[in-house]
């Protein structure tokens, strides 16, 4: 159990800032926003220090604050109004051009062999960032953090079939993005 009588916030920054930043940047795909979230997290932690009772480690506690902030950010993005999508119709976003736009070549795994992990990481973050903002949180929750579908649906207020459709759409785009960025 850790007790915080004299809080050394500089030490917080030295110890956790990079970790928090890396955690956030993967999930919001925007480095400036990630930096803001890190700052907000420290500020909330300092303001709420009285509520911290040492039941968990400081690290766990600070991370839980950041996670809440990320979910709030996603919710804000998801509540923005956009045109409803219609699927499987010629009026939908694919406009009947599915095969021209997305033709899987089955070569993606070659990417991994040729790429340093850190490069691959950056590329994926970039491609997630290129997805429609409304989908990003859902994709991260389900596919990066591998949460149960039920939890993801609750977090984002969607039905299971919404989830399947969004994952399908998002993966088509991710696949396309990775392929284009890699096989130029």
């Amino acid at each position: 159990m850790e007790k915080l009588t004299n809080i050394d916030t500089s030490q917080w920054v030295d110890e956790y800032a990079d970790m928090l930043y890396n955690f956030a940047v993967v999930r919001v795909s925007d480095s400036d926003l990630a930096k803001d979230l890190v700052q907000d997290t420290f500020v909330s932690a300092l303001k709420g220090i009285d509520k911290f009772q040492g039941k968990s480690t400081v690290k766990t506690w600070i991370f839980s604050i950041l996670k809440r902030k990320i979910i709030d950010h996603w919710r804000k993005q998801e509540s923005r109004k956009t045109k409803p999508m219609s699927f499987f119709t010629t009026e939908g976003m694919m406009k009947g051009k599915f095969l021209e736009t997305y033709s899987p070549k089955g070569r993606l795994s070659e990417v991994e062999e040729k790429m340093e992990n850190s490069e691959l990481r950056e590329l994926i973050i970039e491609c997630i960032g290129a997805l429609p903002p409304k989908w990003q949180g859902i994709v991260v929750d389900k596919m990066v953090d591998e949460k149960e579908s039920e939890e993801v649906c609750n977090n984002h207020d969607i039905t299971p079939s919404n989830l399947w459709v969004i994952v399908h759409r998002a993966k088509l785009q991710l696949r396309d993005c990775l392929e284009k960025k890699w096989f130029v």
């Binding site: 930043y21 890396n22 899987p104 992990n117 691959l120 596919m143 990066v144 591998e146």
Partner: peptide
Amino acid sequence: QCCKNYAPDSDFINQILVLLCEEDTSESL
């Protein structure tokens, strides 16, 4: 053939997305 290729590509994406979850401090402020 396209749809035959789809499943391995898709599975690959699943695998690399999970990699992001690992704790990482490669980028720093």
